[in-house]
Design a protein around this nucleic acid. Structure first.
Length: 347
DNA sequence: TCTGGGGTCCTAGGACCC
DNA sequence: TCTGGGGTCCTAGGACCC
């Protein structure tokens, strides 16, 4: 029997962290997002299960959430608090002796010697849930599989507070008739494109032709889609520390900005911020990319490569200004962003 | 459903070189 | 000097995820 891989996902993570410090909110519909003002631009980061019952979900505009659930409590996003809770969870997982591969704030793949060749990985999964709850008071769900994709997909069927096992044995029984967007990595666009080819279900995708899909989706993506439908490949859980490829900032204005000088000032300020943070981390910047979202909702990006010897804040800001000058459109601006792409040869 | 902010990876097309 | 073919790099955009 191959080794087991676990995937742990905290239940309604952000909402749960808020409830821990405001116990009076337990059992109430709670929405965390933006700056907590549901009349402003912003989206839902996490809704509590009570709010989800009203049709509120992650990614939804706060205004919509307020309309669907007027009695919900709205709170601003507090990154620092979630990062701290997240670090505690990962520390607990590592203390168990597991190899941990984090996937964002509230998820991780897990491999452990105790999972080698056992018949009942559920016992270990429940022990992990218990430890996380004990040290952080947070509930989680755990998926079990022989591949990361199996484990990750299983977790959703265990929520909340449950454990679910998904292997080649029950993969098609559980997923076969579901739409292709049930798979991790297939979103609405790809799902629709597949449907146009007559591929509607996971089962159909699993037996689709690599060659045909390669023609439509490209040589890498096409065959990968078929592999997904079959439960994924054997990439191992890696404990190697994550090295970011890029870092940046974005900001959506509450009111569209028509004054280009104001846009310039804001881009310069953000570029300086991004450069300072990157250089403080010892990362060299290879390229700066400026993003502008014009009203009503049209996004354009332009970048500028930095010469190898010009790696200071001033050079980064100057490069951002050059990139910004390549935008020709002059419409009201909804969002601006600055992203630094790091050199890969340094840590 | 008037659409955040943090990211990653892949693709297509053009430039450029031999 | 009517126009091949392959490789690589860069750029912008698309799609997806948490």
């Amino acid at each position: 029997m191959p080794d087991w891989i676990l995937h742990l996902d905290l239940d309604q993570f952000i909402a749960a962290v808020e409830i821990l410090r405001r116990p009076e909110l337990r059992g109430r519909p709670l929405v965390v997002g933006g700056d907590g003002d549901p009349t402003k631009r912003g989206v839902v980061s996490t809704a509590s299960y009570e709010a989800r019952a009203f049709g509120v979900h992650s990614g939804q505009p706060l205004r919509t959430a307020a309309r669907r659930c007027p009695d919900a409590v709205f709170l601003p996003v507090d990154r620092a608090a979630y990062e701290e809770a997240s670090a505690q969870v990962f520390a607990t997982l590592r203390d168990s002796g597991a190899v941990i591969e984090p996937l964002g704030w509230d998820e991780a793949f897990l491999a452990h010697p105790a999972l080698r060749r056992v018949r009942d990985p559920e016992v270990f999964a429940q022990e992990i849930q218990r430890r996380v709850r004990l040290s952080t008071r947070l509930d989680s769900s755990v998926g079990i599989g022989h591949t990361k994709l199996q484990a990750k997909t299983a977790t959703g069927f265990g929520k909340p507070r449950g454990v679910f096992r998904l292997t080649a044995e029950n993969w098609f029984a559980v997923l076969g008739d579901l739409g292709t967007d049930a798979l991790w990595g297939i979103g609405p666009k790809t799902s629709r494109k597949l449907a146009e080819l007559g591929v509607h279900s996971v089962r159909q995708l699993a037996t689709a032709s690599d060659v045909e899909l390669a023609q439509v989706f490209g040589p890498t993506t096409g065959p990968w889609l078929v592999r997904l439908a079959n439960g994924g490949d054997e990439s191992p859980v890696t404990g190697a520390p994550w090295v970011p490829r890029s870092a940046g900032q974005e900001h959506t204005f509450q009111v569209d900005v028509a004054d280009w000088a104001e846009v310039r000032d804001e881009v310069a300020r953000m570029a300086a911020d991004v450069a300072r943070a990157a250089l403080a981390d010892g990362r060299g910047i290879a390229r700066v990319v400026v993003k502008v979202r014009f009203a009503p909702f049209f996004t354009e990006t332009h970048g500028r490569v930095l010469s190898g010897d010009a790696d200071d804040e001033t050079a980064v800001v100057a490069a951002a200004m050059v990139a910004l000058d390549r935008f020709e459109r002059r419409k009201p601006v909804r969002l601006i962003g600055v992203r630094a792409e790091f050199r890969s040869d340094d840590a």
